[in-house]
Every structure is written in structure tokens, then in C-alpha cells.
Amino acid sequence: MIALEGVRVTYRRTVALHSIDLLLLPGVTGLFGPNGSGKSTLLRVLAGLLRPGGGTVTWDGVPLNISDEAFRSRVGYAGHGSGLYDRLSVRENLRLFGALHGVRDARVEEMLELVGLQDRGGWPAGELSAGLRRRAAVARALLHEPQLLLLDEPYANLDDDGAGKVSDAIKAWRTPGRTGLVATHGAKRVKGYADAAIILQHGRIVSYRVRTPAEAPT
């Protein structure tokens, strides 16, 4: 369980997050809100990539700390950028991050197939279309089967087929005890599998709704 208490982030004079209090339960939570509402900032705080100006973030009661290797091995994050090296092929990129996370090459092939990139594995990442790159980024984030998955706009630039593959990959990752936060403008994309939904506006949570057992996704 991840708990945020009074988390505040300020960029110079702009307040990106206003004293956020949030209890993130296991399962997948959709994170919605207009541009500039603080979705990406919240994801970066949870990934440990951004230190909040105030407040605390704990995971199962332990303060979140990116300096802790054990924490890093449990987090999967895909931000705005793909996090891939243009000059390496998709497969080389995934094998690189796989090796750094102690993942076998067979898992790389599995992920390539899951996001529908098995035929493009040999392509340089820099030559992929924006949509295909997005799929590769999701595959990279899911590669080591993280306990905490943070995806920032995983459906950006994706066609229906690609979006379906990304959803399938997230559903395959989702097992009891794991926590995911998926920021997106496409609410209907995550509707099929999300357990909860958060709406952010101007750096404040204006709605946090958890599905009832009767509404639970299949």
C-alpha cells in the first residue's frame, strides 16, 4: 500500500501538486485529468524521480527512497519519453534493461510478443513510429514484472490494435498485490481493467473512486 501525506510539488512559482493525501491500494488505478493537472508530476514523485517539496510518501510504511536498490528493482516506470536508446534496436534496448534488472532474454521475447513488436525487434528504436515506440516503452517498464507500475500516457499515439496490446500487457502484469497507476486521457481504454480512478485538477485530487466488488473488472 502506498500512502502520500501532504505531498506538495512546486516548480518555481507554479504549484504542481497541492498537499496531496492519497492511499493507493493494490490493483490498477486510472489517473485522469486535463493537461497540467499534475498527473506526470505525481507519477514522478511515486517513482522517486522527483523529490516533493513537502509531505511524505511511504510504501508499506517505509519512506520511498530512490537510493534504495531494492525499491528500484520493484518499480516499473514509463514517462513521456520512451526511455529507449535510438541507436539500439528494440530488442537490444529490452535486453539491456533486462540484464540490468536481472531478467532473462526469454522474457524479452515474451514482452515483444505481448506488445506486438516481435517482428520489429531488430529495428533501431529511433526508427520506430511514435505509437510503436510507446509500446516498446511499456514493454520496458513491464519487463522485470515490477510490484509498482507507473505509466504516463501509455496510449498516446496508439491505434486501437496497439492500445489493445498495451491493455493486454497491463492485464497480464496485474496480479494480486501489485499496484499500478496509469495516467491517460483515454478513460475508456483503462475502464476495462482499472480497479479505481483518480481525477486530478490543478494539482488537487477532486475525485477518487474505487470500484465496488459488483463493478470489479474481469
Partner: peptide, 18 residues
């Protein structure tokens, strides 16, 4: 090369001592 496409974020999250 690390800044481009945000690879530095992915790199900062690998379990390897800095």
C-alpha cells in the same frame, strides 16, 4: 544520449549502485 527520450529516468530506476 541519456537525456534524449528520457533514458536517464529508466537508468536511474535500475538496481545498480550509482
Amino acid at each position: 544520449v541519456e537525456r534524449h527520450e528520457g533514458a536517464i529516468d529508466a537508468l536511474l530506476l535500475v538496481p545498480l549502485d550509482r
